[in-house]
Design a protein around this nucleic acid. Structure first.
Lengths: 344, 344
DNA sequence: TTTAGCACTCATGTTGCCAGAGTGCTAACA
DNA sequence: TGTTAGCACTCTGGCAACATGAGTGCTAAA
């Protein structure tokens, strides 16, 4: 079951070649490669063995071989010669963070865009769930007699806002008092806990200052319902169309539908553990991903994982270029975010 | 050059049929239709004339006919029997506005989504340019020693926010004063004019209260640079993939690239005049639009046009269903927005 | 163990053929 | 003069036959 050195070499060359040219690789063309010093017949024998072991497969009886998912898996796990990230690319990535951006979301979004541009695959970044941010400041801006905007600023510079309707008979003075109470009591509280706190602590206080305090409490609670999902950012949504692998319109439709939906893809990304992960084809447990690979890398503030940056491409992905790139970006992002937000 | 009644009838039936089935229409199948009481031979003669006049064309010598762009044009201009909007659809549209939403953007975005769902084409809505909104309130929330978020709330409930960096040595007290000054002086001013006002009126006032007033003024001016473009909202970006007309991957790629870019498509929409407009195929002056039509309808607050709602589909679009729908939605949106924002 | 050689397989492209849909034209008809 | 039936013609699309070329598996010799 263990592969011989020569088999490994052949597998490696097959995968490299197929990644490059997207065409089945035959024994004759292999025998012409520098790395390979034995004849096509020998290669054929070895290929037959490799096929039997499940590392490569044929598209039809007399075709060349293409890597199977297992073949890619072996390649990724054992054969990857990670390229160094090109200095030009390093420059570009560094420049994302060179501007003094504070807003976490912008950093994340920009990273997604650049990653997709550098790879011409589709990048997906799960931003930190807003619910885990902490409240920095709450403001209420009245718009008309019964409508106002609540603005929530978090410690990561994220601004969340939503309109709501006042219960009847509330005075500007009361609103002001309420805002003060809320800011005093809720600063530093994770958004996800706002609701509980409002019922537990704030309601009592409001009672002392506001007429319609019970209705108001309810409105506040409703207003501060924070979506529990991570935000999803995309880069190069339609890059898949450019890949020669996707000539089948139906496949494309399926993929696009999934990307459009956001749910499916973010769920798929989310279930990967910390660090860097490569999921090849059906390893993603999703029929539309049959010819796709997904590489994920988590990023963090300090030691705490806060999001995932992912790359979606054909199984025939340039792993050796892309994996180091993703590692680099996620590490760099983590570093930047950590200096920005660590000691808040 | 004027068409006879019979020619018009035939043209109408051809277009209707082709819109429905996406297959070239032959004389024999035409002759079997109820509406048509004369023989296939007669139809052939008429079709020959119609072709000579440029209203229909063949895909090959012995194929049935399909409408030309000129044919669609005539159909849209003269033959459209606008269907009534289905009551079910009316319900759905009404329900968009039934919830008491105040935020203009949400209304616009929701409209885009629903329009695309009802038509299975791609909808694009140009929201009002943020720069034309008026400032309702400005807030500044410090994030750390030198960074803060400026939050701009407009009269349409839009919240714009951006981070900026304080010049050195500014005290919390000074910031508060500044915010007060800005709110006093700038409330009701269109965002696009903020900059001018800051240099003309605010700078002088800041001078009296703030040490580093010149640097601060510059930072403010920089912060209040408002993007001049309309916001673009999409619905059903990938709906085009579902149309039988788009089997050619290259065409699809071109279209998707344009949609992804946002620039091209919004520019194309923008150059249509007020009211409802139908641009067929090359009338859009854009090679990727060759087999597409674009229908635009403007919406307004009171008498002032503030945005455009558009629908992108194949030239073989269901004009008779879709045009009334678009009319209805744009009118309804205008009505709702007018009651919400007219007297602000 | 390696390799040369050969028979075999299959995808691809070409050709010819046929059926079917559709046209254009002509001649007869109302 | 307008309408229609009929017929010859054209083109697409599907199918089968065939050649080609890339590639394989196997055998036998080195």
């Amino acid at each position: 079951m263990l592969l011989t050195d020569r088999q490994v070499l052949i597998l490696q060359v097959i995968v490299d070649d197929f990644i490059r040219y997207a065409l089945p690789v035959g024994s004759r063309s292999l025998s012409k490669k520098e790395e390979i010093s034995f004849s096509s017949a020998t290669i054929r024998n070895e290929m037959a063995d490799l096929e039997e072991l499940g590392f490569i497969e044929k598209t039809h009886t007399s075709s060349g071989r293409i890597p199977s998912e297992k073949g890619y898996r072996y390649y990724v796990d054992h054969l990857l010669a990670p390229q160094k990230v090109k200095t030009a690319d390093v420059q570009i990535i560094k420049s994302i963070y060179a501007e003094r951006i504070y807003e976490l979301e912008k950093i994340v979004q920009k990273s997604a865009r650049i990653l997709s541009e550098m790879t011409s695959y589709t990048s997906i970044v799960l931003g930190p769930a807003v619910k885990d941010n902490r409240l920095r400041r709450l403001q209420i801006v009245p718009l008309n007699a019964d409508t106002a905007i609540a603005i929530i600023v978090t410690d990561t510079g994220h601004v969340e806002n939503r309109t709501f309707h006042f219960p009847a008979n509330i005075s500007p003075g009361e609103v002001e008092k309420m805002v003060n109470i809320l800011n005093e009591r809720l600063a530093g509280v994770p958004l996800v806990d706002l609701n509980a706190k409002i019922y537990k602590e704030i309601a009592v206080l409001l009672r002392q200052h506001i007429q319609n305090y019970d209705l108001m409490t309810e409105v506040l609670a409703e207003t501060f319902k924070i979506p529990s999902n991570e935000k999803v950012f995309f880069g190069g949504k339609t890059n898949m169309l450019k890949q020669p692998d996707f000539t089948d319109l139906d496949k494309v439709r399926g993929l696009m539908a999934m990307i459009e939906q956001e749910e499916g893809i973010s769920e798929m990304i989310r279930r990967n553990p910390e660090g860097i992960n490569v999921k090849i084809g059906r390893e993603n447990n999703n029929s539309v991903m049959e010819n796709c690979s997904l590489i994920t890398a988590t990023y963090s503030i300090g030691a705490e994982k806060i999001g995932t940056i992912a790359l979606l491409g054909p199984t025939r992905m340039e792993y050796s270029r892309v994996i180091p790139l993703l590692k680099f970006i996620s590490a760099d992002m983590s570093a930047v975010l950590t200096t920005l937000y660590q000691n808040d």
